[in-house]
Design a protein around this nucleic acid. Sequence first.
DNA 1: ATGGTGGCCCGGCCA
Length: 257
Amino acid sequence: MRIATWNVNSLPARLFRIEEWIQYAQPDVLCMQETKLADAAFPHGAFATLGYETAHHGDGRWNGVAIASRVGLAEVSTGMGSLDDAQGPRLIAADCGGVRVLSVYVPNGRSLDSEHYPAKLAWLARLRAVVEESAAPDRPVAVCGDFNVAPEDRDVWDPSKFQGATHVSQPEREALADLEKWGLVDVFRRLYDDGKLFSWWDYRAGSFHKHQGMRIDLILVTEVLARGTTYGLIDRNARKGQKPSDHAPVLIDTVVG
DNA sequence: ATGGTGGCCCGGCCA
């Protein structure tokens, strides 16, 4: 099974790139973030044409998450209660081909002195609670999305440029590590040990061409899926060309045993 | 270079 995640930075603006990517990458499950859509505006038909069922959780201008699947889409659940109300629609989950799949868009946090920073930490803690309540670590589970956290220093282009910034702070990394301690593996990192394997590059200042990015889009899987994972890719080609998202899609190939 | 770009949608906000 090919499982992918992509922060599309507006689904309407990116639909032609998403359709193109689905057709050549052939994911079985695609998690999307920052759809920037209300549920009523989601283009289910465009995905159905390509053979995918879709579920979406969004309210309009900001945030918004979705799952597209060609291996079944059942037991859809959305949001995380009052925290979701305060931080926007950022979580949707479904059973896809025997895997419990979560598409997550972790709050950015803005800056360490912002009120949005502790809200980000609280959201990550709540995500752990949701996973603990709704899934089992000995079952196939994939938590996919834009975590807005670079797990290690090698996941940013220059750690010295991130002194005092979000995405690299110890509390954020500990919150991510705490989620992983439940029983999730950053399987792309397990497969590929190199630095500079980034999934996001700022639109500004030619960051992509200068390889100045971060790896913040992650596919966290339970050990039963990690053991079956044979391949992973951050598709930098999707960050090139006409009207790209500022994120590249990330995918893994795994066997659901 | 205290900017830069791009999406929301037209005045700033958000990333």
